[in-house]
């Protein structure tokens, strides 16, 4: 589904990603862990199409297509979803009109007719129940005045609405209390399908108690320096990242 080959990228002339290799197959859950500043969020930004990151080498194939040539909206329509670390507040744009526009754009891409108002509201109600998001939130402007937890739940709600093939969740656990974390993780698990894949980017092991990854990668200094099974998370939790840094420097 996703093939990243020797990906290099910089921000303002400073190299951040220094040759990333990664392959994600349908049905898999990958976790990307690593210390602060290792390039985790930059990788997520590159995959979603953020323009301030400059690609300096390598390639990314998604469903066989060159992802790096596509606009953010084209990627989203093909099935890439980024759960933001810091979801953006957009006063004056209602959640309903935002989601309706987005869902219908994606339906258009999939050669489906746009939802009628009533069908859309029904669809939205189902998804809200699925991810246990408060009904009130969808009556407001996008993320405006939402608490940290509400914003993250709203990301999962959007993910449910858009039914992506590949979800990239960037530090979705940061700023969540344990109850919110459970709701967010439940949402992700409920949305898991054999044909879909998820990349969970996290600093802590905590989220991985709820979302069980098939593979864990450690990103350090712009490269994936270690790849192992889920037991790696526990080891990292126990020992921190220093031993990996040391190992890598040697």
């Amino acid at each position: 589904m996703l093939k990243i080959k020797n990906l290099r990228a910089q921000i303002n002339g400073k190299p951040i990603l220094k040759g990333i290799n990664l392959e994600v197959k349908p049905g898999e859950v990958h976790a990307i862990m690593g210390p602060n500043g290792s390039g985790k969020s930059t990788l997520a930004s590159v995959l979603a199409g953020r323009e301030y990151v400059e690609i300096t080498g390598g390639e990314v194939l998604f469903m066989g297509k060159n992802l790096l040539e596509l606009s953010p909206e084209e990627r989203a329509r093909m099935g890439i979803f980024l759960g933001f670390q810091y979801p953006v507040e957009i006063p004056g744009v209602s959640m309903v009109s935002f989601m309706r526009t987005a869902v219908n754009e994606i339906r258009k891409y999939r050669n489906l007719p746009p939802f009628s108002s009533s069908d859309f509201l029904k669809y939205m109600r189902e998804k809200k129940e699925l991810v246990e998001i408060d009904t009130q939130l969808t009556n407001r402007s996008v993320n405006e005045g939402f608490s940290g937890g509400e914003k993250k739940k709203n990301e999962i709600f959007q993910m449910a609405m858009l039914e992506p093939k590949l979800s990239i969740l960037d530090e979705t656990d940061s700023g969540l209390d344990i109850d919110a974390l459970r709701i967010v993780a439940n949402g992700v698990n409920k949305l898991k399908r054999p044909e879909n894949a998820t990349i969970v980017i996290t600093h802590y092991q905590r989220l991985l108690d709820y979302i069980i990854p098939d593979v864990i990668h450690v990103l350090y200094n712009g490269q994936i320096v270690k790849t192992a099974g889920k037991e790696l998370a526990l080891e990292l939790e126990e020992k921190g990242y220093d031993w990996i840094k040391k190992e890598f420097q040697n």
């Binding site: 909206e73 754009e105 996008v142």
Partner: peptide, 15 residues
């Protein structure tokens, strides 16, 4: 940031 957020959900630049 708002533009990117909207576009990352499949909404066109124009929209």
């Amino acid at each position: 940031d708002a533009m990117f957020y909207l576009r990352s959900r499949g909404i066109s630049h124009k929209e």
